[in-house]
């Protein structure tokens, strides 16, 4: 499969603290890559490099490269706003904005100056259908998004991300705050979405990584321990540490 992104010798520093150490791995197009590892291993830090979320806070520094179509997205000349448009992100908890369901999904489109109401309506409906939440919200598009259940809110947030047609969606433990049924719906949705987008998902839940992902990367103390097809990671890993981690002997 083709590589959409290539992480090359990536290091990351919060001030003087090095949180990522020389990480190299590919992100294959139209696949799901899980990032697993114990708390503090750097998996979320790595995820937040892809959309340069770290740029929001002072004293953060990248070293190394993340290549996308041959271009380093970490370099100074990159338009970060455009990059974030191409790299959607879904967080641990649902984060609906304090506005209506419709306005939530239209948010990113309006940022891109889509003003035409019929175009907005069409794209909002398409995104909500893609996120498998249209049937549940179609009668309440103009009511506040806070009224939806947690699982519906999370699918709304996915719809909001899909509306701007990203190439990649970054999931940061996006099912951890949901009940098992809602979490299962999100997992099914992710499997469906990889036909159109590439997914990178941080998860604490190893069963989930085994169930949904095509590739898995185990991280530990800021370094990549092992990257391979998920089947290989969970059945015949090359490293002893990986075997210990996936069998629950450490972590």
């Amino acid at each position: 499969m083709e590589d959409l992104l290539e992480v090359k010798n990536l290091s990351f520093f919060y001030g003087a603290d090095q949180a990522l150490k020389d990480v190299t791995l590919p992100i294959r197009k139209n696949s799901i890559t899980s990032l697993i590892g114990p708390s503090g291993c750097g998996k979320t830090t790595l995820l937040r490099c892809f959309n340069r979320m770290h740029d929001l806070y002072p004293k953060n520094r990248y070293a190394g490269e993340i290549l996308m179509a041959g271009r380093n997205i970490l370099s100074d000349g990159v338009d970060v706003l455009k990059l974030r448009n191409a790299m959607g992100m879904v967080f641990q908890k649902p984060t609906p904005f304090p506005m209506s369901v419709f306005d939530n999904v239209a948010y990113g489109l309006r940022l891109k100056s889509v003003r035409n109401m019929s175009a907005l309506r069409e794209k909002v409906e398409k995104a909500l259908r893609q996120a498998a939440v249209w049937d549940e919200v179609k009668d309440r598009l103009h009511r506040n998004a806070a009224g939806l259940s947690g699982g519906q809110q999370q699918r709304l947030v996915i719809a909001r991300t899909l509306a701007v047609e990203p190439k990649v969606i970054l999931f940061d433990e996006s099912t951890s705050a949901l009940d098992p049924i809602s979490a299962k719906k999100i997992e099914e949705l992710m499997a469906e979405l990889k036909k159109e987008v590439t997914i990178v998902a941080v998860t604490h839940n190893m069963q989930q990584a085994a169930r949904i992902s095509d590739y898995t990367a185990l991280m530990y103390l800021g370094s990549l321990v092992e990257f391979d097809e998920t089947g290989v990671i969970f059945t015949k890993p090359k490293h002893k540490m990986t075997e210990d981690y996936v069998t629950g002997r450490f972590g």
């Binding site: 959309n51 979320m53 929001l56 706003l81 455009k82 974030r84 448009n85 790299m87 959607g88 992100m89 967080f91 641990q92 908890k93 984060t95 904005f97 304090p98 506005m99 948010y107 990113g108 940022l111 891109k112 947030v157 909001r160 991300t161 701007v164």
Partner: peptide, 23 residues
């Protein structure tokens, strides 16, 4: 996280303040 959600969609600081923080 709410503010980051706005930034993650490509919003500027001003857009985030005006459309998310103030509401």
């Amino acid at each position: 996280m709410l503010k980051e959600s706005s930034y993650a969609l490509g919003a500027t600081r001003w857009e985030t303040v005006r459309r998310v923080v103030v509401p």
